[in-house]
Design a binder for these strands. Sequence first.
DNA 1: TCTATGATTCGATATATATAGAAATATCGA
DNA 2: TCGATATTTCTATATATATCGAATCATAGA
Lengths: 118, 118
Amino acid sequence: MEEPQAIAALGALAQETRLQLFRMLVTCGPDGMSAGNIAERLAVPPSSLSFHLQQLTHAGLVTQRRLGRNLFYAAEYGAMNGLLAYLTENCCGQGASCAPSCSPADALARPSTKTTAA
Amino acid sequence: MEEPQAIAALGALAQETRLQLFRMLVTCGPDGMSAGNIAERLAVPPSSLSFHLQQLTHAGLVTQRRLGRNLFYAAEYGAMNGLLAYLTENCCGQGASCAPSCSPADALARPSTKTTAA
DNA sequence: TCTATGATTCGATATATATAGAAATATCGA
DNA sequence: TCGATATTTCTATATATATCGAATCATAGA
């Protein structure tokens, strides 16, 4: 992950509603959750939610998928994995051996992303 | 680390100047760097730098220490460690075994902080 | 105490972000 | 095609953040 992407991801998560939203999507797994369902659970007006979903999507942290009338949003585990890798590499001094890797969930979600992230 | 602290840390790092600043401090080690030195290296006006240092300090990511006329700022490895732990725990599904821990640098910088951070 | 230096705080301004109602768009089922 | 539902986009507004010159504060040395 490059610096601009890392900044985008950090900024996307640095907000209460979005952090809670992302955490919820993470627990939901790859199938994700519909926008309406999210709005209800988080008690956020639809238009506000849409704004936050857009922020997360633009940062590459969530993906969108339509199912009938519903739009399902799911956590992009690879992006979070990449962010963790970036932070770990830039926080632990130069030659330190820090083990980041979110491998279980990463493998669950998308095994191919792992190479690009680091 | 709790959610509000995590949000503060994420927000503090979600800015180009501050991310670069923090990365620089990380490479500097526990001794840190004087404000003037930072300002020169990052080519940022003193007042602007002061603002960013305040943001990072308030988020607990850096510490301040006076040496004569100079104020030295150093990376707080424990805070970054805590952030990584928080993100890892909230990104990797529920029961996944993700190893975050920035232990080498944490030990290098301040072995006592480890208990408070997590 | 006076002056120079290092750094912050103040103040003003520009820009970005967050909130949310209203209108528009997309899809489904009848 | 029409109405109902799901969701977004538009629009306005409030709030927060970023920038940086000028003024202020803190320390050291003469």
